[in-house]
Design a protein around this nucleic acid. Structure first.
Lengths: 385, 385
DNA sequence: CACTCATGGAGAAACGTATCTCCGCAGGCT
DNA sequence: AGCCTGCGGAGATACGTTTCTCCATGAGTG
């Protein structure tokens, strides 16, 4: 009768009743055109509220769900953001900074969802097999190595890329990182003030930005204050090697009286090694390590840790990326500087291409000689809930 | 000249040079039809190898990347698998079993990538906003609550769903879970054999499958051996409440001489509480907790842990899901029993709808009265790398 | 010689949506 | 009376694949 009749006249194939309802079916059932359905559901066009609500009602009744694939094809936006992790060895996630990554990914997921995007986890290893098969609106890259071909290709094909960790030579849309130099210098000063005479470092052998910048900061500080560097390195992705390296560091003839460990498990490893050598913490050895884990609040003694604030980083990275995705129509060589002029949401601070986030030092007993009481605390009566 | 000429004759819009090359451009450049390009690149059709390689070469030269959206629209397959986590409170991931989830997600990601799929992380909370906007070939659901509307809707709309954790009333394609009852009974027997007279339990207040089955197994065991149950509960998602509950458990007048803690941080919390009350582990108190973390290998003393084998679970869940996705054309009410007849890859063992995975008890000093040496081990000389 | 058959490949129809263009129709204005 | 304007909505096209159908050709076969 109405125009809807001859529209649904198409669909020449055999009678399939079990198909999911499409926008055509909704249009036919509501007695309007496809255009009207699309506009009504997406809040566009000029339609009286009555039509809008009627169409919505019909769509609901038919259980209509718009096809994400068709929408993506048409609009060029998938609502998907890649989360790429650099992989050491076979496993998709890096073992090192495990808690850091988990926290960061969690915050990133949350932030993305809050803005209508979802995260898909993609190791950098698997090449075009699966990479090319996913429509990505943008990508977060964690600690890209110099000259990463993957990042280059993504960037070249117009996909915005924001990296966690200052990139070496990759062209990225923006990046976020901690101020690793300031963090290390802060820790060294903190240990010095606590009475440390010779501060050692437990660091990694890999060349990622975090390890490199932190080690350089340590060496620079040593040169400045005139201390001979005392450090041991080990492959950070090997969980067993850390304990060995910790032992090695404390076995040296020029044994340090304070140690900073760059990686999460170093705290327990150093504590165990100290115990083996009969060193009391903090009396004989001051200890700090970088970790996001709260187990160090309950060790004996509790260990001072540096937090890289992965939640803040994850949130910021995603917000920068989505700003880039939504900010400019299609990044065909637009200059980065013009990318986010007005719509900067994280307080008009930093210069967009690179943002440095502060770290947080959580001071506990292991780095304080003048702690009020290093003995076992008196038993606490069982409290309320 | 050839047919390719008039095919590329279309594209009436204004001259856009910067567009990404499409399959049409490849066809025109190679002097063949679109069909031939598609067949050549996808390894289908009957084409001489010479044509195939020539087309591939041209595609490579033009930097052709097939549009994932178009492919998904046409084939109905996106290569994406949803990973849904039940959320407690605001955060997208559950705090409890944090390491478990991280390990499981890692294994699932790895397994999916190995078979050409990618994982997208989707909390169950965010409803149609983002859920409906993503084309999912299937979904992994972690510990779905009874009558989960989300799972029901997914299943009804034909998306395969495999759950980690035995589902209550949700209709799922398949599920995988640990044998929680056997695990708890094994631990209780282990503690009994080590000399425990009164075994306590630290458990949660939530109603998820894991907590429920484990607690029931404990109560059943108590009834069988005639021990009065001694347990404390706390909201497992609250990291601070665990320490309080541990303290409460050891402060009871009927203080247990052995404790099993259901959640990851219980080990350190119980150890700290024992220290406060002057209890030696394992001499005065035997300790076991469920954890995937290896920090318990380095505590003083090392703590016996139960591993739920998240890697095995993640791998199995994903393989089952992909089997279901690829096994049958479009799940319109096919009976589950016929779903995986031949192509079962994980050794022809389990009955498909539900699979129980064994757990692993990692016995350390905290649960052995006759440990060879509970004192500090002698300093080990610095070994080779 | 008339015929099947395998080979190599072209044409065109979907897939389901968003959106650009355009059209009819009132009512108010000059 | 003609004209403009705004409202409500229909038609058609394009997004970029995959794939079903079909055609031309030359070689083998009775």
């Amino acid at each position: 009768m109405t125009a809807a009749a001859n529209q649904s006249g198409r669909r020449p194939t055999t009678s399939r009743r079990l198909e999911r309802a499409g926008i055509r079916d909704v249009a036919a059932a509501a007695g309007v055109s496809i255009t009207t359905v699309s506009d009504a559901l997406n809040g566009k066009g000029r339609l009286p509220d009555e039509t809008r609500s009627r169409v919505r009602e019909v769509a609901e009744r038919l259980g209509y769900r718009p096809s994400a694939a068709a929408r993506t094809l048409r609009t060029g936006r998938s609502g998907l953001i890649g989360l790429t992790v650099t992989t050491y060895g076979e496993e998709p996630f890096t073992f090192t900074e495990f808690a850091y990554f988990a926290e960061m990914a969690r915050a990133a997921t949350s932030a993305a969802l809050g803005r209508g995007y979802a995260l898909v986890v993609l190791p950098a290893s698997s090449r075009h097999d699966v990479w090319g098969n996913i429509a990505l609106d943008g990508t977060v890259v964690i600690d890209p190595p110099d000259q990463d071909p993957l990042v280059s290709e993504l960037y070249r094909s117009g996909v915005p890329v924001v990296s966690d960790g200052k990139p070496g030579n990759c062209p990225v849309t923006a990046w976020v990182d901690n101020d690793h130099e300031a963090a290390v210098l802060g820790i060294l000063d903190h240990l010095s003030e606590a009475g440390a005479r010779r501060i050692g470092l437990l660091t990694g052998t890999s060349t990622d930005t975090y390890t490199r910048l932190s080690t350089e900061a340590y060496l620079g500080w040593c040169a400045k204050v005139g201390q001979e560097p005392v450090y041991e390195t080990y492959p950070a992705h090997d969980p067993a090697a850390g304990a060995v390296a910790a032992d090695r560091l404390l076995a040296r003839p020029d044994r340090p009286d304070a140690v900073y460990g760059l990686f999460d498990p170093n705290g327990t490893d150093l504590l165990a090694a100290a115990r083996r050598y009969g060193l009391r913490v903090p009396d004989d050895l001051l200890l700090v390590c970088c970790s996001e884990s709260d187990v160090y609040a309950a060790t004996e003694p509790p260990i001072t840790t540096l937090s890289l604030k992965p939640r803040k980083i994850g949130t910021t990275v995603v917000n920068l990326l989505i700003d880039a995705i939504e900010g400019v129509d299609s990044g065909t060589g637009v200059d980065i500087a013009r990318l986010f002029p007005p719509r900067f949401r994280t307080a008009g601070t930093g210069p967009p291409p690179g943002t440095l986030m502060p770290t947080e030092l959580i001071v506990r007993a292991s780095s304080q000689r003048r702690s009020p009481r290093t003995t076992v605390s008196p038993p606490r009566p069982p409290g309320e809930v």
